[in-house]
Design a protein around this nucleic acid. Structure first.
Length: 465
RNA sequence: GCUCCCUUCGUCUAGCGGCCCAGGACACCGCCCUCUCAAGGCGGGAACACGAGUUCGAACCUCGUAGGGAGCGCCA
């Protein structure tokens, strides 16, 4: 039987970090085992579901490259099917109508609590075989087994046993005719042939009741894997207060999609001491059974480090495509300056994100307007600054080709000409070219400016020296 | 309240009874390299929640305790 996994978000907001990791693990498990990955939108909560959220989830998955093989399926389009299965259960005597009001149920719960038990429905209509009637309180409830226990082997949590005495007769069909979550997932997972249910561990508590429904329907129970949560840096539940929660926010903040993927795959899973995984390696090595049991915290520092690793090791041309996106996002036209791929090479050791890179790259795409006063005082107002700049200018002007190596040699020649070390030429030049004391290596800094602009900036600096 | 789950350096983790007075990575500190800043190299500090068992031997097995989390809806 071919493996089929699914990611089933409810469209009530953007794709967040936790959801993205769940989707990644489902996707990897399917790819690793040569199976299929299905996307299903659980939109039965009509109050909170929006089309915008559906689009946001699709966008997030698309950016991460988590392609689905089937779907998206929408639960709201499957209402007839849930009703049909419910009727089946009713006919088989495995479900029944109940008509208690919210107040009555509330009273039952309070009574159970008072006895030191869980708040739940007491099953009073269970054996009454009440007929269908048009009543605003009408719900269809599941006849949960009253004795014995439910057992399932969770691929990450291990064997979990649950006494049926702890479970009550859950609602299958609400009074508004919509199925409840626990019923709809089971019907969907059966219909869609899902073999491996991989989801957040906030669902472990639902699993025993779902297993009972599988049994009542005579369907094969899939294997389950419940993933631990991702916590914020402070160990608290991830929320908007912790900054970026939406996956797309990470794109805006300058992260590469596969850096995020790499970070996410290592959060709760590992393969020996390996830290860097290409997507192909993830697919080859991932096994959901190796996922850790405990929750983990999100650490932006490590994500940033990983991002820089990819910035440094990926093909500059590929990084440049993402880099240009960020240049534009910051209002810079890439055509007004050097080749973005060259800029990537110059800045990838100095920036952890593409956003940071784009900010640092502005000097080459916009005219130099300001000088840092401290930089001017320290490196331009010296006895050697002017001769150094003049010597460098002469060398640059005479260069037959404008290349980093040639520029490097020219600067060395200029230093030799005035009898000083590299530093005495490099620093004034750096201030001349960027207005600051910090930039990539001086030859690259000069190169990226282009000869005409470099000479212009040097002339302006000489005038100030 | 009840049920279920979890617990190795600050963080992510390796470890699946002897290879561990616990390894790697991020972060941090120091040194080296150096035209600035980085990157890189080398080195350093830093953890098995606690208590009982089982065993010749426990981070690994069992049971408690403590702490944390999830759920107990006609929400998903």
């Amino acid at each position: 039987m071919t493996v089929r996994t699914r990611f089933a978000p409810s469209p009530t907001g953007y794709l967040h970090i936790g959801g993205a990791r769940t989707a990644l693990y489902c996707w990897l498990e399917a790819r690793h085992r040569g199976g299929e990955f299905i996307l299903r939108i659980e939109d039965t909560d009509r109050e909170r579901s929006t089309d915008a959220a559906v689009q946001a989830i699709l966008d997030g998955m698309n950016w991460l490259g988590l392609s689905h093989d089937e779907g998206p399926y929408y639960q709201t389009l499957r209402m007839d099917r849930y009703q049909a299965v419910a009727d089946e259960l009713l006919k088989a005597g495995k479900a029944y109508y109940a008509y208690e009001s919210k107040e009555e149920i509330e009273t039952m719960r309070a009574a159970a609590m008072a006895k030191g038990e869980k708040p739940r429905y007491d099953g009073r209509a269970r054996d009454q075989n009440l007929p269908y009637r048009n009543d605003p309180n009408r719900v269809l409830r599941f006849k949960n087994p009253t004795s014995g226990s439910v057992v399932f082997d969770d691929k990450v949590k291990g064997r979990i046993e649950w006494s049926n005495a702890e479970l009550d007769d859950l609602v299958l069909i609400r009074s508004d005719g919509f199925p409840t979550y626990n019923f709809a997932v089971v019907v969907d997972d059966i219909d869609m042939g899902i073999t491996d249910v991989i989801r957040g561990d906030d669902h472990v508590n639902n699993t025993p009741r779902q297993v009972n429904i599988y049994h009542a329907l005579g369907a094969a129970v899939p294997s389950f894997a419940h993933l631990p949560m991702i916590l914020g840096p402070d160990g608290q539940k991830l929320s908007k207060r912790h900054g970026a929660v939406s996956v797309m926010q990470y794109r805006d903040d300058g992260f590469l999609p596969h850096a995020l993927l790499n970070y996410l795959v290592r959060l709760g899973w590992s393969h020996g001491d390996q830290e860097i995984f290409s997507v192909a390696q993830m697919i080859e090595l991932f096994d959901v059974a190796d996922v850790n049991k405990a929750a983990s915290r999100f650490d932006l520092e490590k994500l940033s480090w990983l991002n820089q690793q990819y910035l440094k090791n990926d093909d500059p041309r590929e990084v440049a495509a993402h880099f240009e996106w960020h240049l534009r996002a910051q209002g810079i036209d890439p055509r007004t300056g050097p080749d973005p791929a060259d800029v990537v090479v110059a800045l990838r050791d100095r920036a952890r994100t593409l956003k940071e890179m784009a900010e640092k790259a502005k000097v080459w795409y916009e005219p130099l307007r300001e000088y840092d006063e401290a930089a001017v005082a320290k490196h331009l107002k010296t006895a050697t600054a002017k001769p150094a700049l003049e010597a460098a200018r002469a060398q640059f002007d005479a260069l037959s080709e404008w290349k980093v190596e040639a520029i490097h040699a020219a600067i060395e020649a200029a230093a030799a000409a005035i009898g000083e070390g590299m530093g005495k030429v490099a620093q004034p030049l750096r201030v001349a070219l960027t207005g600051t004391q910090v930039s990539p290596s001086i030859d690259q800094t000069v190169y990226l400016a282009g000869r005409d602009e470099a000479l212009r900036r040097i002339d302006a600096a000489i005038a100030r020296a």
